[in-house]
């Protein structure tokens, strides 16, 4: 989706900055911002580019590096850690073949850490793009990855 189309849907008010960034990043397959895009957003809202950059740098959702189509976020907070009986982190690293912070060569998967997802009643939990998967087991984890790959081949 072109940035201009996303911008059109929001009022030219600077308090919409985060909403705009969230919406545009979600639409983009690489889930990241390029410099000229940040400039364009700053121009649209009539704020300094530095202000946009400070927001992008502050919030963990935003990235200036290209990421995979599916972003796997691993919760590593206490409640998930206490219920992790199959070493979630090593398992997912092995299944995807990448380490935390990396993206697969085909640009399909990125692996990240996240702070608590608020699904401690279904721990251990991960977030894949917008969806939370809880009460994970090794098989369930494999199925989630397989499902993503299937969607791509379909």
């Amino acid at each position: 989706m072109i940035l201009a189309e996303v911008l059109k849907r929001f009022p030219k008010k600077k308090e919409y900055l985060i909403e705009i960034l969230l919406e545009y990043q979600k639409q983009k397959e690489t889930h990241h911002f390029e410099e000229h895009e940040l400039k364009e957003i700053a121009n649209y809202l009539n704020i300094p580019e530095s202000r946009v950059c400070s927001v992008v740098g502050f919030y963990t959702f935003f990235s200036t590096e290209p990421r995979g189509k599916y972003i796997f976020q691993i919760c590593r907070d206490l409640p998930c850690q206490l219920n992790d009986n199959f070493d979630l982190l090593s398992s997912i690293q092995m299944i995807l073949g990448i380490k935390v912070g990396e993206t697969t060569q085909d640009g399909l998967f990125t692996l990240e850490y996240t702070s608590c997802l608020g699904h401690c009643d279904k721990s251990p939990a991960i977030r894949v793009n917008d969806k939370i998967h809880g009460s994970l087991s090794l098989n369930k984890l494999k199925a989630i990855v397989a499902e993503c790959k299937e969607k791509e081949n379909a």
């Binding site: 600077k14 919409y16 985060i18 909403e19 927001v55 502050f58 919030y59 959702f61």
Partner: peptide
Amino acid sequence: VRSGAGSYVCGEEFALLESLEGKAGR
């Protein structure tokens, strides 16, 4: 409805207000 963007400190009331104003949550 306004969405956060992955920041724990934004649960603190003034950080939340900063975030609602479209700024970093400090």
